Simulated scan of single mutants.
Amino acid sequence: MGFLSVLSMAHRWVTERAGSGDTVIDATAGNGVDTLFLAQTVGRGGAVFAFDVQEAALERTKRRLADSAAAESLAPVTLLRAGHERMSELIPASLHGYVRAVMFNLGYLPGTDETLITVPETTLPALEAALGLLAPGGVLTAVLYPGHAGGDTEAAAVERWASALPGSRAQTVVYRFSQKRSAPFVIAVEKR
Rank of each mutant, 00 (worst) to 15 (best):
L80T: 09
R60T: 11
S88N: 07
M87V: 10
L58G: 04
A50D: 01
N105D: 15
I25K: 04
A75S: 11
A39L: 14
S20T: 12
R64G: 10
N31S: 13
R86V: 06
G19I: 05
A69N: 11
R81F: 08
I91G: 04
V99D: 03
A75V: 03
T28P: 10
E59K: 14
D67E: 15
L58A: 10
L95H: 08
G83R: 01
R64K: 15
L90T: 02
R44Q: 14
L36V: 14
E55T: 15
D22S: 10
L38Y: 00
R60Q: 14
F37N: 05
L90N: 03
D52S: 11
A71Q: 15
A56S: 14
T78S: 11
R60E: 14
G83M: 03
Q54L: 15
L38M: 08
D26L: 03
T35R: 02
A50S: 10
M87C: 10
I91N: 03
D67W: 06
A47G: 09
A66I: 07
G30D: 02
A29W: 00
L36D: 08
G19V: 04
L90G: 02
D34S: 10
I25L: 12
T78Y: 00
A82H: 04
D22C: 13
L58S: 05
P76Y: 05
I91S: 04
V42E: 01
A71S: 15
D22Q: 09
T35C: 09
V48P: 05
P76M: 09
N31Y: 06
V48S: 09
A82F: 06
R17A: 08
G45Y: 01
A71E: 15
S68T: 10
L36A: 12
G21K: 05
F51L: 14
A93T: 07
I25P: 01
V24I: 11
A29V: 03
I91K: 03
G46V: 08
Q54I: 13
V48H: 06
M87K: 07
A56P: 07
L80C: 09
T61M: 09
H96D: 12
F37K: 06
K62A: 15
